[in-house]
Design a protein around this nucleic acid. Sequence first.
DNA 1: AAAAAATTTTAGATTTGTCTAAACATACAA
DNA 2: TTGTATGTTTAGACAAATCTAAAATTTTTT
Lengths: 218, 218
Amino acid sequence: MHSFTEENYLKTIYHLSQFTASPVQTNAIADGMKTRPASVTDMLKKLSDKQLIDYIKYQGVTLTEKGKTTAVGIVRKHRLWEVFLVEKLKFKWDEVHDIAEELEHINSALLVERLDEFLGFPKRDPHGDLIPDQNGFFEPVQNIHLHEMSCGNKGVIIGVSEYSSAFLKHLERLGLTIGIIIEIKEIADYDGSVELLVDGRKINVSREVTQHILINYK
Amino acid sequence: MHSFTEENYLKTIYHLSQFTASPVQTNAIADGMKTRPASVTDMLKKLSDKQLIDYIKYQGVTLTEKGKTTAVGIVRKHRLWEVFLVEKLKFKWDEVHDIAEELEHINSALLVERLDEFLGFPKRDPHGDLIPDQNGFFEPVQNIHLHEMSCGNKGVIIGVSEYSSAFLKHLERLGLTIGIIIEIKEIADYDGSVELLVDGRKINVSREVTQHILINYK
DNA sequence: AAAAAATTTTAGATTTGTCTAAACATACAA
DNA sequence: TTGTATGTTTAGACAAATCTAAAATTTTTT
Ligand SMILES: [Mn+2]
Ligand SMILES: [Mn+2]
Ligand SMILES: [Mn+2]
Ligand SMILES: [Mn+2]
């Protein structure tokens, strides 16, 4: 089996490779893992030996099929546990991430499948992130970040791309939670802040906020 | 916080000190932890530095109040998770121990209390072991091992003191599960095996088995 | 009470994951 | 195309947890 550390590296590499097609760089991984580039290099050698990543010195890394499968499995566990915490134990959506960071490493295939069943095979976690199925497949959907939309566009909030408690509590205070319908009324030239129409009310949010809200776009 | 390893040592010392009033010995801990006496000595120094145990060279160890509180907290989590696995996820009683060994290290006080509530504040785990409350208190009860009883005695199976899958499956095949009423019909001089009356049927069990069944004795 | 046996501790290595500082490689700019 | 900045790797050290082999202590037996 893999150590917690190895699993966390794989997950970090997986998430970083979502944004670009090109190989993931050492410094980016160091940032994501809150460690030093030299430590990353050490671990990359180890993961490469285990055939979990393709690694060429100075050129960055990509996950192998084996590595990707492992990473997606961890993501699946993380998101299922988050659903459990919110749906069954009444945690708030801003309280579950850190606990799920621990629970995602619990090692039992049977446990994951029983948990999935117990939760009613949920499709998304409390932050709107898709939960891969047992085979690692994601339901295809097209999301767009709020800041990529134009004046007059409408949509439904389907998720977030930032999980800090501070951010999630802020959204809640604004009434911007998953499932809410929004319409863009105005985008300020000055600072990129956006005026939204939400449930008949007008709300102003900073560009910062719009960059972390995902909209279901059809 | 404490490492998984430190927590496992504390739990092992706690369980070993249940049997005797005298300090727990290095070799016993090594057995329990499936490690070497030399490794135990190293860890005892560390736990002593952290004031989790009282340790005198060559004289064995006892848990301090701080150490006992920590150990009981881990036991509480272990048993609550076992209840969760059996009651909510439909695991069998012989399948849950290893998973609970991992889950018991998840670090969130809120999680434990929410889980307890979700499970309806259970008093015992699937093996009949008492679950300490939030303050580490156990409901007082008097158990006795089946092999300590005499001919003609009656009682209710209230728990086990051995958790291997092989043993638990064996009990299930014999119909000897928690809540079952038994009466001792005969104890063989030759090998200490016991004939039990269970639900009108006569059942023969080895001394080995009788040493690991707990009976509610009033 | 001395010898033998059992138990425990120390000494010295090893593995995993981390770090800093210095060397090396690549990208990009003058 | 040479120099500089950025990014990455190596070298060497360190802490945690483990191990084997040898030394030290305690307990048991004679
Ligand atoms: Mn999360
Ligand atoms: Mn999430
Ligand atoms: Mn157990
Ligand atoms: Mn149990």
